[in-house]
Simulated assay, not measured.
Amino acid sequence: MPIIYRKYEPPQTCTPAVVTTGEEKTPDRPDGPRDNAERDLTAIRRLISQDLSEPYGIYVYRYFIYQWPHLCFLALDDGIGTSLSMTADAATTAEDAAHADTQTQRDNLVGVVVCKLASHRGVKQRGYIAMLAVATAYRGRGIATKLVRLAIDRMIQDGADEIVLETEVDNESAIRLYERMGFIRSKRMHRYYMNASDAFRLVLPVKVESTIRYCVLANELDAGPRSVADLEIGSSSET
């Protein structure tokens, strides 16, 4: 089944739910742009929460997604439209057809990556991959790699000096994915998660200065760049 990718569309760009003309108030269609954005957010939370070792509140999602919507990428299964009660084939107008197609995509969210890009302790622009999730039935198809690549490319385009993330030390599939893309282990954080699991901080140096910094530290240990997991670099937590 075909997978399509798009950026999250935030509420800030949506039209109001009620349009006022003179003294009359005409309600927007029930599934207007703002409703669509909120439904996207609900689907994102549902997908990510399946694999979390600790729960995130709604404000955590809004912090990342509303401030950096261009760094939130969605993977959607575009091949399951027939399960809807109203499909594009059954729609009577072009507007209804477009609405049915949008609803189909939203109901079939199968992957998401959520990131931010901001200054951090002397690093002018540090990218941060906060959340990555792919539905269990869709794993092994390169969706996670594609989502991360989209996010990395956009953060580099926006001037990222380096990109970081944390993952549980026993999440071998995630570690392999990120190391294939050039990330190195910069630190091991003990009992980092609420379930008492340790975490690795992984770093992808982008700019020359960041690359030199991590390579020099790795060479000082007389080890490859993937063997500096216990080295103290940066802060002990991300916010």
Score class of each variant (00 low, 15 high):
residue 149 R to W: 02
residue 154 R to L: 03
residue 226 R to M: 09
residue 4 I to Y: 02
residue 234 G to S: 12
residue 195 N to I: 10
residue 92 T to N: 08
residue 232 E to N: 13
residue 165 L to Y: 11
residue 84 L to I: 08
residue 60 V to G: 02
residue 18 V to G: 03
residue 73 F to L: 00
residue 210 S to R: 13
residue 89 D to Q: 14
residue 28 D to Q: 13
residue 166 E to V: 13
residue 186 S to D: 12
residue 14 C to R: 04
residue 188 R to E: 04
residue 61 Y to V: 00
residue 58 I to R: 09
residue 239 T to G: 14
residue 16 P to Y: 02
residue 236 S to C: 09
residue 38 E to A: 00
residue 92 T to K: 15
residue 29 R to E: 12
residue 149 R to I: 01
residue 82 T to R: 14
residue 145 T to S: 15
residue 146 K to E: 04
residue 224 G to V: 05
residue 153 D to W: 00
residue 20 T to Q: 13
residue 171 N to A: 06
residue 11 P to S: 07
residue 152 I to A: 00
residue 172 E to T: 14
residue 121 R to D: 13
residue 59 Y to M: 11
residue 112 V to E: 06
residue 41 L to N: 03
residue 100 A to C: 06
residue 131 M to D: 05
residue 177 L to S: 05
residue 215 C to Y: 07
residue 127 G to I: 01
residue 219 N to D: 13
residue 134 V to T: 13
residue 194 M to L: 14
residue 200 F to S: 05
residue 42 T to W: 09
residue 34 R to K: 08
residue 205 P to N: 01
residue 166 E to R: 09
residue 116 K to W: 03
residue 211 T to S: 09
residue 166 E to S: 10
residue 40 D to Y: 06
residue 71 L to S: 00
residue 170 D to C: 07
residue 93 T to G: 07
residue 165 L to T: 14
residue 189 M to F: 10
residue 147 L to E: 00
residue 120 H to F: 15
residue 237 S to W: 08
residue 174 A to K: 11
residue 190 H to I: 14
residue 156 I to F: 00
residue 138 Y to L: 06
residue 172 E to V: 14
residue 192 Y to F: 15
residue 5 Y to F: 15
residue 141 R to V: 00
residue 61 Y to S: 03
residue 71 L to K: 01
residue 142 G to D: 04
residue 107 D to F: 10
residue 18 V to S: 04
residue 169 V to Y: 00
residue 89 D to W: 07
residue 102 T to E: 04
residue 226 R to H: 12
residue 112 V to S: 08
residue 15 T to Q: 15
residue 209 E to I: 11
residue 169 V to Q: 01
residue 235 S to V: 12
residue 180 R to E: 00
residue 52 L to H: 08
residue 49 S to F: 09
residue 41 L to Q: 01
residue 114 V to A: 06
residue 66 Y to F: 15
residue 8 Y to F: 15
residue 10 P to T: 05
residue 155 M to C: 04
residue 94 A to P: 07
residue 130 A to L: 04
residue 76 L to A: 08
residue 106 R to F: 05
residue 146 K to W: 00
residue 46 R to N: 11
residue 103 Q to T: 10
residue 199 A to N: 05
residue 183 F to C: 04
residue 24 E to Q: 13
residue 94 A to H: 11
residue 7 K to P: 06
residue 3 I to H: 01
residue 120 H to L: 05
residue 35 D to N: 07
residue 150 L to A: 02
residue 195 N to F: 11
residue 112 V to Y: 10
residue 193 Y to Q: 07
residue 223 A to N: 04
residue 100 A to W: 05
residue 1 M to Y: 03
residue 35 D to L: 03
residue 217 L to W: 02
residue 153 D to S: 01
residue 173 S to E: 11
residue 144 A to Q: 02
residue 213 R to F: 12
residue 50 Q to C: 09
residue 23 E to Q: 13
residue 154 R to F: 00
residue 32 G to D: 14
residue 55 P to A: 01
residue 166 E to H: 14
residue 77 D to T: 10
residue 88 A to N: 08
residue 127 G to Y: 00
residue 5 Y to N: 04
residue 190 H to T: 14
residue 28 D to L: 05
residue 105 Q to H: 10
residue 189 M to T: 05
residue 219 N to V: 05
residue 54 E to M: 13
residue 145 T to Q: 14
residue 81 G to I: 04
residue 22 G to Y: 09
residue 161 D to P: 09
residue 103 Q to C: 07
residue 224 G to D: 08
